[in-house]
């Protein structure tokens, strides 16, 4: 995968040299062209194309943006309601992810999504301790985390 990105950047660089003036926009166009070339040649090249993985990354980013907006609409309801009636609490959530970068990525995602805030990890990093602003919905939240975020991250790793 790293080799393919190097190849792609190389094609973009050649494209830039073919132009008379160098701009950032030319580089982006060259990168897109290199991407297209790699896409057309993926049958011939001896390694797997990184497009599938890139698609998974974009799916993760899209999920994250959507959840961020939902989170903020929730915050509007919580902050502007006349009285604060929710029951906050801290819950331990089990996680199936093992690598360190995956756990830090999922905690960043959780922290910016509705009503949840990562506080700590257990020593063997099997549990994430999450502060939830409304403990009534804890079951839905645990399911959300395991089904949505873990699935999306595992898709990137595959």
């Amino acid at each position: 995968m790293a080799f393919q990105i190097v190849l792609n950047v190389f094609i973009a660089f050649i494209w830039v040299l073919l132009q008379n003036s160098f701009t950032f926009g030319d580089f982006v166009i060259g990168y897109v062209i290199g991407f297209g070339v790699l896409y057309l040649l993926q049958k011939i090249l001896p390694f797997e194309f990184y497009f599938r993985r890139l698609k998974a990354v974009f799916a993760l980013l899209w999920l994250f943006t959507k959840e961020l907006f939902i989170a903020n609409i929730d915050m509007v309801k919580i902050v502007l309601s006349p009285s604060f009636k929710h029951k906050p609490g801290i819950i331990a959530v089990p996680t199936n992810l093992t690598k360190k970068w995956e756990i830090s990525l999922i905690s960043c995602l959780i922290s910016l999504t509705p009503g949840t805030l990562v506080m700590d990890y257990s020593l063997d990093s099997k549990y994430i301790y999450i502060h939830n602003i409304d403990i009534e919905s804890r079951k839905a939240m645990i399911e959300d985390i395991q089904n949505k975020f873990e699935k999306a991250i595992l898709e990137v790793r595959k």
Binding site: K87, P88, G89, I90, I91, A92, D120, S122, Y129, I135
Partner: peptide, 9 residues
């Protein structure tokens, strides 16, 4: 607040 798993740990 009703629940504090972290304190228990």
């Amino acid at each position: 607040s009703t629940h504090d798993d972290l304190k228990e740990s």
